[in-house]
Simulated scan of single mutants.
Amino acid sequence: MTSDRPRVVLFGRNADDADTIAVTDVLRQETVGGALMLTAAVVAVVWANLGPDSYQRLLHLPLGPLDLAHWAADGLLAIFFFVAGLELKRELTVGALSKPAEALVPIVAALCGMVVPALIYAGINLALPDGRPQGWAIPMATDIAFALAILGLVGSKLPTALRAFLLTLAIVDDLGSITVIAIFFSHGFSLLWFVGALVCAALWALLQWRRISGCYVYVPLGLLCWWCMYSSGIHATVAGVVLGLLTSSSMSKGPSYVDRWEHQWRPLSAGFAVPVFALFAAGVPVSLDRLGIVFTDPVGLGVVMGLIVGKVVGILGGSWLTARVTRAELAGDLRWSEIASLSLLAGVGFTVALLIGDLAFEGDPATQEVAKTAVLVGSVIAAVLASISLRRRTRARLRD
């Protein structure tokens, strides 16, 4: 007796077997990547609370020039940003961002969705005693993997234009977050190392222009660029997005470098790099007292209010104002109620928000824990509210 379920193989796909699914294909699914990240985050929180000493030993276990926590934040996360850079390059050349007039509403919405949360955080921390305004960038970031996974799970019946809106918004958000990290959270700048990184990036672009292929060339060059960027004092993840943006999207025979490399690197990013980063970044002690501190400490309150209130006000308000004062319109048959639900979903800040929290309060572990806990709490609240709202929007669509 044979099973009707498809077989899963570890490497590749058998072209003669339509029922065979490669693990890499599974990892390219947004819901799978989001589930792995969520699982890693839950494991981190449980581990940090049941075995805090062993968890801290793991974080600070040295491996070469860095400890494991820094390898995760500076190294593995560069893979995530490389894939984000590839996706951004494709969208800029042939995708949603290639025609600015069509992308104007989500672009402005993304910018407003970054500025308003930052202003809310800064306002709270400037107004309250013991405020620490240097964490203003934490609630700016939307986690593209989690957001798209939630939309796929609870909003699959909604128009595909809603996903395109979220994707455009998240890509602009990622670009803005990377820019903020490069400008405001880089320390000990070294011009010589930075020039080395630029030379590596220029050579990368030249090889692309000459259509030279082969991982034996690009992998060592990418690692060298990463090391030069890290040594320059600029956060090493910037190297990932720079190389992604410099990758060629032109096609001669077969898929472009952008499409081919995104296809190859996304499973590693979603299935390993981001979950491992979540495992090392999300481990914070959780108790009723600590959760209470989130809503009383200026840092925690600023992060939570920025993610939940700031994202909604910024994205929905920015979209409405753009449509009101310009000729831009919502794509397809999107409704404003669906944009409101999407703005709630954008409050799910995780990967980049945790990274910025560590960078903003470097050398202050207690405040880092408050910021991390606030990111987790705010993201969970935003995810729950967005899921309820998206389900209501789905039922409304089905009734029509």
Rank of each mutant, 00 (worst) to 15 (best):
Asp4Trp: 00
Val8Leu: 14
Leu10Ala: 08
Leu10Thr: 11
Arg13Ser: 05
Asn14Met: 02
Ala15Glu: 14
Val23Asn: 07
Asp25Gln: 05
Leu27Ala: 07
Leu36Gly: 06
Thr39Asp: 02
Ser54Asn: 09
Leu59Pro: 10
Leu68Tyr: 01
Ala72Phe: 09
Phe82Trp: 12
Leu86Phe: 00
Leu92Cys: 13
Thr93Lys: 01
Ser98Arg: 14
Lys99Ile: 11
Val105Thr: 10
Leu111His: 09
Cys112Arg: 01
Met114Trp: 04
Gly131Ala: 11
Met140Ala: 08
Ile150Ser: 01
Leu151Lys: 00
Arg163Ala: 09
Gly176Glu: 10
Phe185Ala: 07
Phe189Pro: 13
Leu192Gln: 12
Trp193Asn: 13
Gly196Lys: 04
Val199Gly: 10
Leu206Gln: 11
Ile212Gln: 08
Val217Asp: 09
Tyr230Leu: 15
Gly254Gln: 11
Pro255Tyr: 08
Asp259Arg: 04
Trp261Ala: 09
Val274Met: 13
Ala278Ile: 05
Asp289Val: 10
Phe295Lys: 10
Phe295Glu: 11
Thr296Met: 01
Asp297Met: 01
Pro298His: 13
Ile308Tyr: 00
Leu316Thr: 03
Gly317Cys: 07
Gly317Ala: 11
Thr326Val: 03
Glu338Lys: 00
Ala340Ile: 04
Leu344Pro: 04
Glu362Leu: 14
Pro365Thr: 03
Glu369Ile: 08
Ile381Gln: 03
Ala383Ser: 07
Ser387Asn: 14
Thr394Asn: 11
